[in-house]
């Protein structure tokens, strides 16, 4: 497992450096504009970018064919990819909590830290969890195509919700009535469920795959 993560980090070495660099630049710009919330939200994109690059590198080198006969199970190979996303999620979450501690004002201050601690993992992992099984099933190229379609669906959903604002308002009213801690638990539950189901799906697909 450690070997696999190591391989991923080496393969992405250059990309990781430029990514950290970009985050710093974006951070600098957003801080100057006073729009600090953009920074944590960037972490939603990070795993997607990294996964895309990892898949590119893996497909090019055909590395699956090399590691499957090696001393790992197929399940571990899939797990390593999930662990990769989870590491990004942990970093993103810690980063956001730190940001909150050092900030003087802004919306982050109003959100309790435990809510950040459960929301960030969901935000960071959500898209990857949908994308990973698709990538295992259809390969990176087709998965991306499916995702474009998905974007449209989500977009349509949002515009539907947008045109039915009263629905949202009602929902929000109910939500506010609830305890924040319960919301936090619910978010955690959703995250866990999403991650577990996604991992189970990917493993099932990958164990049947032929090279």
């Amino acid at each position: 497992m450690i070997a696999l993560i190591y391989k991923d980090l080496v393969a992405l070495r250059k990309a990781l450096f430029s990514l950290v660099f970009i985050i710093f630049i974006v951070g600098f710009i957003t801080v100057r504009q006073g729009n600090i919330m953009t920074l944590p939200l960037m972490f939603i994109l990070v795993p997607l970018i990294l996964l895309g690059m990892l898949w590119g590198s893996d497909t090019k080198s055909n590395v699956d064919q090399y590691i499957i006969p090696g001393p790992v199970t197929r399940r571990t190979i899939v797990l390593s990819r999930y662990v990769f996303v989870w590491i990004v999620a942990v970093i993103g979450t810690l980063f956001t909590i730190l940001l909150k501690l050092f900030l003087r004002d802004g919306i982050l201050l109003e959100i309790p830290w435990y809510l950040i601690a459960v929301t960030m993992p969901l935000l960071v992992t959500a898209i990857s969890m949908i994308q990973l099984p698709l990538m295992y099933k259809f390969g990176a190229e087709k998965a991306r195509l499916i995702f474009v379609v998905l974007y449209f669906v989500v977009f349509a959903l949002f515009s539907y919700i947008g045109s039915n604002k009263e629905l949202i308002a009602k929902f929000m009213d109910k939500l506010i009535l609830l305890d924040l801690k319960i919301i936090g638990l619910a978010v955690m539950g959703v995250t866990l469920l999403l991650n577990i189901v996604s991992f189970a799906l990917s493993t099932t697909i990958y164990t049947k795959k032929e090279f």
């Binding site: 391989k7 080496v10 393969a11 070495r13 250059k14 590198s57 080198s61 590395v63 064919q65 090399y66």
Partner: peptide, 11 residues
Amino acid sequence: VFDDLYLPEDM
């Protein structure tokens, strides 16, 4: 050993 070494080429 396969006909090529299937490892990421940046290694």
